[in-house]
Structures are given as structure tokens and as C-alpha cells.
Design a protein around this nucleic acid. Structure first.
Lengths: 121, 121
DNA sequence: TAATTATATTATTATATAGTAATTTAACTA
DNA sequence: TAGTTAAATTACTATATAATAATATAATTA
């Protein structure tokens, strides 16, 4: 992190905020194996048309997704390759944490006080 | 991402939401080189007491920070080593993006259409 | 025990935004 | 050109939450 100015922190916060909505994560998930148009995204996620459009705009403005009009349709695709790995990283961290909490139900001498770091690798 | 259920996506979104507030990022930054008590965090961030307490509660519940009472004071420290690298990753992505946008003001044959991926490594 | 200091909680207000219905815009086609 | 379809925008409502003042809790000390 080295010392981040308030302005930079604001941008980082904005970035995370984009990823902090289930619907937007669903949209990103629906794009994980290639470009799709709005109708296809609606079908896959079950979200309403206006809603999908709005989320896609937010994702596009954040630079996470690329907009590509093609005739009467508009295709979107993930443009930031960091996103999926990052989601997976978080996901893995959550798994680790739950696993740790689960272990607390089986108190053995070895598993006690091993590490006070929930996310040790 | 492999296919994430809605329940998992919800948790991932929650995690990102915790990181999507400037004040909480400031608190995390103030802890990046070691444990601090609430008063010290208040001093370093300039945030109000109730506000810091509330943010620390949220960070603790998310497993990002560890609470350690010590006498009349309570010390907090980062417990999830993924957080700072992740913030830096985002930060770097934002830098790359701005650099790309800046290049668009100096259109040279080489810099045109090199990659339509804003975040290429 | 009373007073003090540090932290947590509660109540309140103001602001932001997700979802939706209705409308508009844009591209294609008969 | 009129009609059709896809996507974007607008207006609105409901909900969530950040910040703060006031109060409560908890640990220490005189």
C-alpha cells in the first residue's frame, strides 16, 4: 500500500464498491466464459432489462467490462483480467475462515492456538 | 470463479463492500505497520470516536482485523494478509488504466491498437 | 467506592443506490 | 418510411448506511 493519498483511497474504494453488489457479480460471472449481449445476460442472471443496463454501465465506467455494439445488439466482455482471480482469492479466504471456525468444534491439542491468523496460507 | 452459488456471491459481495468505504480503508492503512489502539487510529485518520469504533466492528466481523483488549485500551491489527496486496493490486490496475488513457493523448503508430485490454500485464 | 479514561452502543439524520415501470434512442427489416 | 427489436435513460420508491451527538459500559486509579 506504501502510503496512499486520500484521492487514491477514494478510487480504490470506488473500485471495490463496484464489486460489492451481488447483481454485478452475477453479471461478471455470466461473462466469465466469453462475450454476451444484454439479452443473453438478462436470461442467464434473471435480472430485469433496465437493471442489467445500469449495472453494465457501472461496470464499463469502472473499466471492468468492454462494450462492443454489433448491429442492433450490444456485446459486453470482461476487460480486466484481474477481476476473476480476485474474486477467487476472496472466495478462498472465506472458505479458509469457515474451515477454521469449523475446526473450533473439534478441539484437539494440535488444532488449538496453532495460528491466530485466520487466513494463514 | 468456477460457478459460484448465489449464497457465495453474496458473501463475496459483502467482503468487497467492507473494502468499499474510504474511512475503512484509512483505518486499514493506519494499521499496515502494526497494531494500534482506537485512540491512535482516531489520531492518525482524523475520524470521530464512534465512527472508528463502528468501522472497527465491521472490519472485525469480516475477519479482516483482530481485536485485542489490553487493560483499558483495545488494540486492533490486520489479521487477513490478503488485504494489503489486494488493495495494491487494485491500485496498480487503476494506475495502468490512467497511463493507458494518457497515452491516447500522444497518438503514435505504435501506441495505437496495441491492445484493447486496459489491464494487460 | 468515586472518579476517570477508553471504547462501545444507540438514536438520528442525510445521502446513496438497487430495482422497476415507463419512455426514449438506435439499428435493423419489410 | 413504418414497424420491430434491443438497449439505454428517466423518474420513482424503498432500503441501507455513513457520520455524529449522546449515552452506556468497562477497566483503571485515587
Amino acid at each position: 500500500m506504501v502510503v496512499m493519498s486520500k484521492a487514491v483511497l477514494h478510487q480504490v474504494a470506488e473500485y471495490f464498491k463496484v464489486l460489492s453488489e451481488v447483481s454485478r457479480l452475477e453479471v461478471l460471472c455470466s461473462l466469465k466464459d466469453g462475450a454476451k449481449n444484454v439479452t443473453q445476460i438478462m436470461a442467464e442472471t434473471g435480472l430485469g432489462q433496465a437493471n442489467v443496463s445500469k449495472h453494465l454501465k457501472i461496470l464499463t465506467q469502472a473499466g471492468m467490462v468492454k462494450r462492443r455494439p454489433q448491429g442492433i445488439q450490444v456485446y459486453y466482455e470482461i476487460s480486466d483480467p484481474r477481476i476473476l482471480p480476485m474474486c477467487e482469492l476472496v472466495c478462498q479466504g472465506l472458505q479458509n475462515r469457515l474451515q477454521f471456525q469449523l475446526q473450533e468444534f473439534h478441539p484437539t491439542p494440535r488444532s488449538q492456538g496453532q495460528s491466530d491468523n485466520l487466513f494463514a496460507n
